[in-house]
Design a protein around this nucleic acid. Structure first.
Lengths: 157, 157
DNA sequence: TGGGTTTCAATGGGAATTTATGGGATTGGA
DNA sequence: TCCAATCCCATAAATTCCCATTGAAACCCA
């Protein structure tokens, strides 16, 4: 199992059926780390966005929880497991590298016709571009690159 | 994994397709350190230029972040990861040692038809030659060597 | 040491492939 | 039987691959 990391950013379109292409670079990371062509979505709040990762990282999360809590900390352990394993959505992507965004998750994240991908080495995030620009995540580099991607697509900011 | 370092300087041309040869000496450093024929670009501001490195240094950055933050410092860790992994561009180079400079990054760095490479042991930088000469980086040695490279190419400074 | 030869790096152009995306057909479950 | 989800195919643009050329540097051997 290779130690490849998620890198880079992109904006892709969400079509009428709710389909969204996972950037090719992310896909090759996913497929280098495990044979499973699938991403797992986990909705995060304030500011709302989607965290996403592959089978490799999912396994890593489990092992981390196992190590972090002692047998006495059963409640804390259960809370962590519930967050990381209950309210997540495993989505296989098709031959073209697309997933179908679940409507509720998509809506909660404020994603309309465009989705912005950000890499975080172990995992990546999916944002509504405007929500990202309006959030406290918007440092100068973020603003520069996201505005640029929107401009390249002919979107008026 | 050998402990080779980036050394030296060069000016290469950017062609009509935005392609740019990585200097052969840098390439052999990259390939001695990691087997991955790829450079990662990271746009830096004020003065605008490109920082570039290989998989080896990228991994080093990741390990440094891992060591610096505890599991409780998830937010701080995410900020660091976003800076180092989101707004970067991993670019494999072809059999001739060329990458394709992304238009937005190239433009922001002010790079037109020529790109100047400077080595910094662990990583290297890519500048527009004129922007470099005009910057606070322009010490006597820089001015001497960059002017020389431009003269050898028949460029009027 | 010097002249010829070979190798390699940098660059240009065109062909082939991949990516992102749209639309229709098919399946299967309620 | 109808709706929704999935699969399959089409396409245009962008990207990557491949081959050719040039000029410079390294090599070699008398």
């Amino acid at each position: 199992m290779k130690r490849d990391l998620f890198k880079g950013f992109a904006i892709n379109a969400v079509d009428a059926k709710g389909r969204l292409s996972i950037p090719a670079g992310y896909r090759s990371t996913i497929e280098a780390r495990s044979a499973v062509k699938e991403v797992t979505l986990s909705l995060r709040f304030e500011p709302n966005h989607i965290r996403a990762y592959d089978a490799y990282y999912n396994d890593f999360i489990y092992q981390q929880i196992e190590r972090r809590f002692t047998p006495e900390q059963e409640v804390e352990r259960a809370v962590a497991l519930q967050r990381e394993f209950s309210f997540v959505e495993p989505l296989p992507y098709d031959a073209n590298g697309r997933i179908v965004l679940p409507a509720a998750t998509r809506e909660a994240a404020g994603i309309d016709r465009l989705a912005c991908f950000l890499a975080f080495a172990d995992y990546f995030e999916i944002w509504d571009p405007k929500a990202l620009l309006a959030s406290d995540r918007a440092d100068p580099a973020t603003i520069f690159h996201v505005r640029n991607l929107l401009k390249e697509r002919g979107e008026t900011i």
